[in-house]
Amino acid sequence: MAGREILLISLIITMFLAPCVKATSIMGLLENSDAFDGKIVTVRGEVIGVLVKGDHAWVNILENGYAIGVWCTAEDAEKISVVGDYTHIGDTIEVTGVFHRACPDHGGDLDIHAETLTLISPGHEIPRSLSPFLTALGLILLVTGILVTVFVRVKKREPFHPLGY
């Protein structure tokens, strides 16, 4: 009897949660956009862009090489402090919201309208340093190139031209 009750409760819970799907990846959303259309999804990704438009904002998130736009309130977007670029890894956020394969409010864009936006981990700077070996090689090659240019012009008695003509 207890087994049947548990089964019944599970069925009821499943029915209520039917439109709410946990997506594991942005790639999964892109490849199965019909299946996820209009459902509540949860995705995680690195912030690669924030475009504020009045009291709302577009937050573009990236995960495993695939990106998607999230439409959220400007207030939610303010939680983001680091946007990913060459010198930064952006904040990682988790978004729960309604997925649209062709959003009727945004000219058919594939997007998520966020209901909640949570900061999972803050972004950080990527240390970039000048390679002494590559710098030395670059300078040597450039100086050699210039010397060879001068040598060829003198040897072949070609008129000097700023661009080698």
């Binding site: 000048l130 590559l134 670059g138 090659l141 450039l142 100086v143 050699t144 190139g145 210039i146």
Partner: peptide, 11 residues
Amino acid sequence: PYFLITSGVTL
């Protein structure tokens, strides 16, 4: 350096 190397080699 990436661009210096490329320019140098091309020159």
